[in-house]
Write a protein that binds this DNA or RNA. Sequence first.
DNA 1: AGAACTGCTTAATCCAGGTTAAGTGTAAGT
DNA 2: ACTTACACTTAACCTGGATTAAGCAGTTCT
Lengths: 210, 210
Amino acid sequence: MDHQFIIVISLSLFTIMPHQSLIDSIEKVLTLTADEKVLLKGSFQTATAKKKDILLKEAEITKYSYFVEDGLLRMYATDNNGFDHNIQFAMNGWWMSDMLSLLNQTPASFNIEAIEDSRLLTISQPAKETLLQSIPGLNIYFRKLSENALAAYQQRFAINLSLPAQERYGKFCERYPMLIQRLPQKHIASYIGVTPEFLSKMLNRPFNQK
Amino acid sequence: MDHQFIIVISLSLFTIMPHQSLIDSIEKVLTLTADEKVLLKGSFQTATAKKKDILLKEAEITKYSYFVEDGLLRMYATDNNGFDHNIQFAMNGWWMSDMLSLLNQTPASFNIEAIEDSRLLTISQPAKETLLQSIPGLNIYFRKLSENALAAYQQRFAINLSLPAQERYGKFCERYPMLIQRLPQKHIASYIGVTPEFLSKMLNRPFNQK
DNA sequence: AGAACTGCTTAATCCAGGTTAAGTGTAAGT
DNA sequence: ACTTACACTTAACCTGGATTAAGCAGTTCT
């Protein structure tokens, strides 16, 4: 009885506390004062996206960085033949943006789409710059964020250049086990750089030999 | 006469002023006090590498970040069949490191080799952390550095997933015209993800038709 | 409940790029 | 000068993965 009651309270606290997962993410790196938290919350807007909503369209100028409070996004490029190529996914607690478009305010090369209904925090580039001046410590947070992302991209490049499709799939499963169940197979195919047909064939090869 | 004399002076000033290109790079982002410059210089060691010297070997734990004062480096992964795959090049004024190995102090996945005789500045990870605490403004510099690198990696991923070899080569020429003349063709092949034989065939196709 | 979509599979055919191997030109090393 | 070595080329053949096309659930919409 008591136990159930506590669960209800914590759930409702959660729903009336957006920004909390962002603050948690930041406080793994540095401590924020109460004032700073207020400032931080004020700099972000909450947003929701339904499955299949497009948050950023190729050729638009990127306005926002996205922080996923809950849900799942993908960023993809479209090739000359109209096929998608997934560059990155973002789930709970991850950031996503077309960095080049965001930094240089040039037209985006990528699209960002919600794969699941999602709750997001968004911050505009000017607001981010103001925020970084008000809370210089955040430079540490964003530095580490970018450094880690960079490390991941380097690894992924090595994998993509060195390994055949079968092993690229294996590495994806190792690294993102939590995504395997949530993602339609075609999106994994696009991420590892094969067609959905080929991935299907590969996964259904008897005994998965070779 | 006078003119030649000035050149000699500026050359010798240049050779007795290592760290200057690093300071220039930083001062595009923030201003350093004289004290900070001294601190900065003290945190780096100068190093030289001859063509073909290996600065980092796969499976070693990365000790240093490298800043190229002059010369040319490449970072590459070796696949199961012993073939190299170039992940990145670094020329004058660029940084290079195996980020994952550096951040987590895990065995490196990459090798770093000098393609030309090079003058380098190196900084150990502990020294970098100390330096960042002494000069917090450097967090801005390294944040921007990583953000820009990230933007470049995202773009390169889009190119690699979406375009055939011919166009990947074209994009490489657009983006790094200064490297085209300095790099042996086989290193470009490895970077864009084809064999040297195929790149050669591609470049010598009559009229370069398709 | 039926229609229309979306995600996955299977199979036949095709091709971009890999592999193997031999040859040429040039540069460095003795 | 002689040799070793490396960068690049050419050509014959091969293969991983693409393309096309059709069929088969499940799901979502009406």
